[in-house]
Nucleic acid binder design. Structure first.
Length: 430
RNA sequence: GUGGGCGUAGCUCAGCUGGCAGAGCACCGGGUUGUGGUCCCGGGUGUCGCGGGUUCGAGCCCCGUCGCUCACCCCA
C-alpha cells in the first residue's frame, strides 16, 4: 500500500476535517475585508519572470534563489508567483484602475510558490489572503489594513500574537540613514555571508536572529530616529488611528521586511506559539513599486496573511472549528428499491435547502445505520420494502433514539418543519 | 544551500545483542435477516520509505537515495 507517488517536497494535501479550518480562515479574513470595502480580484498564478524580478527586487532571496521559473512552449520565461502584490499591481496598471476613483481597494487569495527548504510553517506552496489599497498615501489606510487583519484574527478566536509596527522612511530620509547604517555595520565583526547581505540590503542585518550578530547590532542606528518630518507625521497618524481603533501594537525598531519595495509603514503579525516561522502576516506601504512596474507614480499599502500558518496558530490555541456534522438527514435504505426511493427523497430535501445524504451501496442495515451515526445527522430516514408498500418512512431521531412513522409524501415537509428549513447554516465557527 | 533528529499497519507508536512483524486507536464482519453510538466475539488490512551491501539470516549493521521534521538563512 506504499504510495507510488507522494506530494512534492514542501507541499501537503489538505484533507477533511482540517480542510474545514482552511475555509474558516479564508472566510474570516475575507469577510472583514469585504466589510471594509475591499473588492475581490484574481490574477494569474504565473506571470512574466521579469515582473517579479522588478517588483519583488533583484536583491531579495525570493528572486535570487527561490523562484519557480520555467520556459513555456512559446519560449517565454514565466514564474509561479512567489507573492501576490506584484501581479495585482500589474493588473491595476494594465487596466488603468488608478484613473478611476481612489483608493483602489482589492483583496485576493490563492497559492504562492517559493523554492525553500521546508520547515515548520514554511512550505514551497502556501496560501495567502492579501489586500492592497492603492493610489493614495493616506496613513489611515495603513491603519485600516492592520485593523482589518487584526479583526479577522480575533474573529477566528486568536489572541496569542502581537502586532509589530515600524516605519522604513521614504526616498528622502532612508538613503542618508542607510549610509549611516552601512558605515556602522562596516565596523562590526561579521561573516562573509552577512557582509554580502549588508551590501545588498543593510537593513536586513538588523533582523538577524543569531545572538552574536544581535549583540553587535543592538547599538545600531535606528530608522525610526531618522525619519524625515513627513514620514514622522505619517507614522504618527498611523499610530493614533490604531490607538483609536483599540488595536494593540508594539513598535519594533528593528522590524524589517524581506521584500525591497516597502517604504514608510511596515507591520507584522507574530504568533507566540509557532516556533521559528511565527509570522502569520505582514505588509506595509510601497511608494515606488507602481512606477517601477511602469505605472504612474502612486503609493499603495497592502498585506499578505499566511493561511497555512494561521491554521497552525489556530491549532496551537486549540481553535479547531471543524464541522461537527456533515448533514442533517441521512437515508438508510434496506433494499436496492428502497435506496432508489430514498435518493429521490434526499434530492427533495436538498432542494428545500436541507443537508442530506444517504447510505450508498449494499452495506446491510447495521452498516447503513453506522453511516448515519457517523454523518452526525440529526435524523435517520429508514426505508424498507414493507414501508414502501405501506407508503411510509421511519424517521429516527439519532440523539434520543426515538422513531416516528411518517407518510412518504409528507416526509419532506415533516423534516423541514422539524429542522426549521432553511436549516442551520454551515457556520464553520468554533 | 547548511546542520541535527526521524522514516515499521489508515493513525500514534513498540520491536532487546541481527533470529517466525506487534500493540492501542481506526476500519471490516458477527452477536441483532428492520435499527446506530456503549458492550462482547472475530479479522492485521504490511514492499518495515526506496536501492545496493555485509551476513546462514537484516526492521535492526554499512553505503547511497527520497521524504518528513527541527534549526540557520529567508519569509506568510
Amino acid at each position: 500500500m506504499t504510495a507510488r507517488f507522494q506530494a512534492p517536497k514542501g507541499t501537503y494535501d489538505l484533507l477533511p476535517p482540517r480542510s474545514a479550518l482552511f475555509l474558516a480562515v479564508v472566510q474570516a479574513l475575507t469577510t472583514r475585508l469585504a466589510r471594509a470595502g475591499y473588492e475581490h480580484v484574481q490574477t494569474p498564478i504565473f506571470e512574466d519572470t521579469a515582473l517579479f524580478e522588478r517588483g519583488v527586487g533583484e536583491s531579495t532571496d525570493v528572486v535570487q534563489k527561490e523562484m519557480y521559473t520555467f520556459t513555456d512552449r512559446g519560449g517565454r520565461s514565466l514564474t509561479l508567483r512567489p507573492e501576490g502584490t506584484a501581479g495585482v499591481m500589474r493588473a491595476v496598471i494594465e487596466h488603468h484602475l488608478l484613473d478611476g476613483a481612489l483608493p483602489v481597494k482589492l483583496w485576493y487569495t490563492g497559492p504562492n510558490f517559493r523554492y525553500e527548504q521546508p520547515q515548520s510553517g514554511r512550505y514551497r506552496q502556501h496560501t495567502q489572503v492579501g489586500a492592497e489599497a492603492v493610489g493614495l498615501d493616506d496613513p489611515l489606510l495603513d491603519a485600516e489594513l492592520i485593523a482589518v487583519a487584526d479583526a479577522g484574527f480575533r474573529d477566528l478566536g486568536l489572541s496569542d500574537y502581537v502586532v509589530k509596527l515600524a516605519s522604513l522612511g521614504c526616498g528622502q530620509c532612508r538613503p542618508p540613514y542607510r549610509e549611516a547604517l552601512t558605515s556602522f555595520l562596516a565596523g562590526l565583526d561579521l561573516d562573509a555571508a552577512t557582509r554580502e547581505r549588508a551590501r545588498l540590503n543593510p537593513l536586513r542585518v538588523l533582523d538577524d536572529k543569531r545572538p552574536e550578530v544581535k549583540a553587535q547590532v543592538a547599538e545600531a542606528p535606528v530608522m525610526l530616529d531618522a525619519l524625515c518630518e513627513s514620514c514622522a507625521e505619517h507614522f504618527a497618524v498611523v499610530r493614533r488611528a490604531l490607538d483609536s481603533f483599540g488595536v494593540h501594537y508594539e513598535i519594533d525598531r528593528f522590524l524589517v521586511r524581506g521584500l525591497d519595495y516597502y517604504t514608510r509603514t511596515t507591520f507584522e503579525f507574530v504568533h507566540n506559539r509557532l516556533g521559528a516561522q511565527a509570522s502569520i502576516g505582514g505588509g506595509g506601504r510601497y511608494d515606488g513599486l507602481i512606477a517601477e512596474l511602469g505605472g504612474p507614480s502612486a503609493s499603495g499599502v497592502g498585506f499578505g496573511l499566511g493561511v497555512d500558518r494561521i491554521m497552525l496558530a489556530c491549532e496551537a490555541e486549540g481553535l479547531t472549528p471543524y464541522q461537527d456534522s456533515r448533514v442533517d438527514v441521512f437515508g438508510v435504505g434496506l433494499s436496492a428499491a428502497a435506496r432508489e426511493r430514498l435518493a429521490e427523497i434526499v434530492d427533495h430535501l436538498r432542494r428545500r435547502e436541507m443537508r442530506a445524504d444517504l447510505s450508498y451501496g449494499d452495506r446491510g442495515l447495521k452498516g447503513a445505520m453506522r453511516g448515519a451515526d457517523r454523518s452526525g445527522a440529526q435524523y435517520a430516514l429508514v426505508l424498507g420494502d414493507r414501508d414502501i408498500e405501506a407508503g411510509v418512512a421511519q424517521v429516527k431521531d439519532l440523539q434520543d433514539g426515538t422513531q416516528e412513522q411518517v407518510r412518504i409524501d409528507e416526509v419532506v415537509e415533516y423534516l423541514a418543519n422539524r429542522l426549521g428549513a432553511p436549516p442551520r447554516r454551515i457556520s464553520g465557527g468554533a
